[in-house]
């Protein structure tokens, strides 16, 4: 009995192609987004373009968060929350990336360009 049959070779080739495709699919550079959605709680409060540099104040549950847009990126610069995780998230610019301040209820998500994922749950 032969160790390798025709079907085995076929499956090995298909499997290798599949694994190769997974590298292409999951390791391709993420597309840069050109817009961001700002929401407070469940409500979207603003769609902002990342193409023009500016600062955006957002009133959340605790108080005012400050967002900064620069060079196609966005970040939290000020926040009334205790942990400041949102600020430590730093700049986000890729489609699907999220910066969130949970205590203040403010969430920023980058969109536009080619989305890599349909949804990201955090």
């Amino acid at each position: 009995m032969r160790i390798l049959r025709a079907g085995d070779v076929l499956i090995l080739l298909a499997g290798t192609a599949l694994v190769g495709a997974s590298y292409a699919a999951f390791w391709s550079p993420r597309a840069a987004g050109d817009r961001a959605i700002v929401s407070v709680g469940h409500d979207t409060v603003a769609h902002v373009s990342l193409l023009e540099d500016r600062k955006i104040p957002v009133d959340g549950l605790l108080g005012r968060s400050l967002l900064q847009i620069e060079d196609g990126r966005i970040r939290f610069t000020e926040s009334p929350c205790p942990g400041r995780y949102c600020i430590h998230t730093g700049w986000i610019s890729r489609t699907g990336q999220v910066a969130a301040c949970l205590p203040n209820g403010v969430v920023v998500e980058v969109e536009g360009g080619a989305r890599e994922f349909d949804a990201i749950n955090l």
Partner: peptide
């Protein structure tokens, strides 16, 4: 599908993936 044409190696690779 591959009865007779696929042996242990093909089955094992497909199953592992």
């Amino acid at each position: 599908i591959g009865r007779g044409a696929v042996g242990a190696v093909g089955l094992s690779v497909a199953a592992a993936l």
